[in-house]
Amino acid sequence: MNRDNIVIEAHGLTKRFGTFTATDHITLSVCEGEIFGFLGANGAGKTTAMRMLCGLSKPTAGTARVAGYDVATEAEKVKRNIGYMSQKFSLYDDLTVAENLRLFGGIYGMKRSEVKAKTRDVLVELDMVATLNQRVAALPLGWKQKLAFSLAVFHEPKIVFLDEPTGGVDPVTRRRFWELIYRAADRGVTVFVTTHYMDEAEYCDRVSIMVDGQIRALDTPARLKETYHAASMYDVFYALARTARRGE
C-alpha cells in the first residue's frame, strides 16, 4: 500500500433523486493498493455512491476524483482506469466465457493475441479452463462471480470497484473470492468493495460505515472495534446501523 498516493478522493459527494438524498455529503480518500471496505445497511446509499465514483451517475453536489480525474467532467477518463463489478451479474449470458472476455478486452483496446493469452492465464488461475467455450448462463453463481471479478480486472485497471461481489454464495466460495481480491491488491490494484458480511469487513485495510446516506465511521477495523468497545466488526456495524431512520 502506498499511503502517499491517493487514488480515490471524495469531498461532500451528494446525490439527490427528487427530494430523496441517497448519498449525503460523503468525504473519503483511498490510497493506492488499499482494500477499502464500504459498509452500510441496505438502502444506506452505498451503490449510489459507488456509481458516482465509477462515472455512471452524475453527482448532484460535491466533487470526487478517481485516478486523478473528476468523475463529473472527466467520466470517460475515469472509466479508462477502473474496473467495475456490479451487484447484479451483468456479463452476457448468451456469450461464452471466452467471448465475454474477448469483448471487454477488445473494448479496452487489447489486441487479439493479448486477449487470447490473458484469457488462458485467467482461467488457469480461476481453475475454470474447462468452461472456456461454455455459455455464461450455464455457470454456477460462484463461478459467475469469479468470472465477473476477473473481467473487471482483465484490462489491468488501477482501481476496481466491487458492489457486493459475494452475495448469495457459501463461505468457502467467499473465502476463495477474497483470495482473488488479495492477489489483485498485491499487484498494486486498489480495491473498493461493499459487503454485508462482517468477516469480509475484517479483511479490509480500512472500512467506512454508511448510515442514512452519510458516513458515520471510517477507520481500520481494529481501531473501530476499540472506539466502539466492540468484540467484532459485527458489533460495530450493529451499534451504528440500528440508529438508521431510513427503512429498507
Partner: peptide
C-alpha cells in the same frame, strides 16, 4: 433490463 448495459457503460467505449 438484464443489467448488461451497466458493464458497457463503465467502459470507455
Amino acid at each position: 433490463e438484464r443489467g448488461t448495459i451497466e458493464q458497457i457503460n463503465v467502459t470507455p467505449v
